[in-house]
């Protein structure tokens, strides 16, 4: 175990040279590269942090905008819903009014149609009744009936109004006696005689046949009319039936 001091000194020098060499070729380049990379990474990190902050800011902005939009949408939706509800109510109300008007109009039309129909029916009924009665009376009219009618008329002459009597007594115009049938001569004489008796003076008379009268006799003189006619009964019947229809119509409940 010897120490060669020359070798020792050489090794010292060698070691110091090695220190310099490694410092020059190893430590400095490696440390420099690491520092450079570290700076680069730090720079990237800083950039990334800035971008992250910007991204976060943008995200917050978008979230806020989104929330505003959602709120606005909800508000618009609620408003639209409210308007739709109101519009629906208005439309329903309008439809109700229109329906009521249409219904009233329809009811009015129905009522008018009904009235028209009833009136038609009434007129047709009257016409039918009258036709039937008129035909029946015409069919029934024979000499006995005519004679009977004539006697009834003569009875009426005996109960003339004073006005008629005065008029007939003063006039010089002939009285016209119309009949629905041909009067037998004795009946004509009986009538003349009875009229003369009732007035107290002879009255010129003309006899004529009238189809207008169904079954009856009519005396016309100076605007005064004295008659007995079955059509009067029919007229009365028609009046009665009209009254009955009016009464029945007024009792109908208002639709």
């Amino acid at each position: 175990m010897e120490i060669d001091w020359i070798t020792v000194s050489a090794q010292v020098v060698n070691f110091l040279i090695l220190v310099w060499l490694l410092k020059r070729f190893l430590y400095q380049p490696v440390i420099h590269a690491m520092d450079k990379r570290e700076n680069r990474i730090r720079s990237r990190m800083t950039t990334a942090e800035q971008r992250e902050r910007a991204a976060n800011q943008a995200r917050q902005d978008y979230e806020r905008k989104l929330a505003d939009l959602e709120q606005q949408q909800a508000s618009l939706l609620a408003e639209a819903e409210k308007e739709a509800r109101q519009s629906r109510r208005d439309m329903i109300e309008q439809a109700r009014i229109d329906t009521a008007e249409a219904r009233n109009q329809w009811m009015q039309e129905v009522k008018e149609e009904k009235a028209s129909f009833i009136k038609g029916v009434q007129q047709q009924s009257l016409f039918a009744v009258e036709s039937i009665a008129r035909r029946a009376l015409e069919d029934l009219a024979d000499e006995q009936l005519e004679e009977r009618i004539t006697h009834t008329f003569i009875d009426q002459l005996s109960t003339l109004d004073q006005g008629i009597i005065d008029t007939l007594s003063k006039t010089r115009k002939p009285a016209t006696l119309s009949s629905s049938f041909e009067l037998a001569p004795d009946l004509k004489n009986a009538i003349s005689r009875e009229l003369q008796t009732a007035i107290g003076a002879a009255v010129p008379m003309t006899f004529q046949r009238s189809e207008r009268l169904i079954c009856g006799i009519e005396l016309v003189c100076e605007g005064h009319v004295l008659s007995w006619n079955l059509s009067d009964y029919l007229t009365d019947l028609t009046s009665l039936m009209e009254k009955a229809f009016e009464t029945a119509r007024s009792r109908e409940p208002e639709a």
Partner: peptide, 16 residues
């Protein structure tokens, strides 16, 4: 040591 260090460190990069 020197040669190895020189060979390696002559092309050092700052790439990750």
């Amino acid at each position: 040591l020197t040669l190895g260090s020189w060979l390696i460190t002559r092309n050092l990069g700052d790439d990750p």
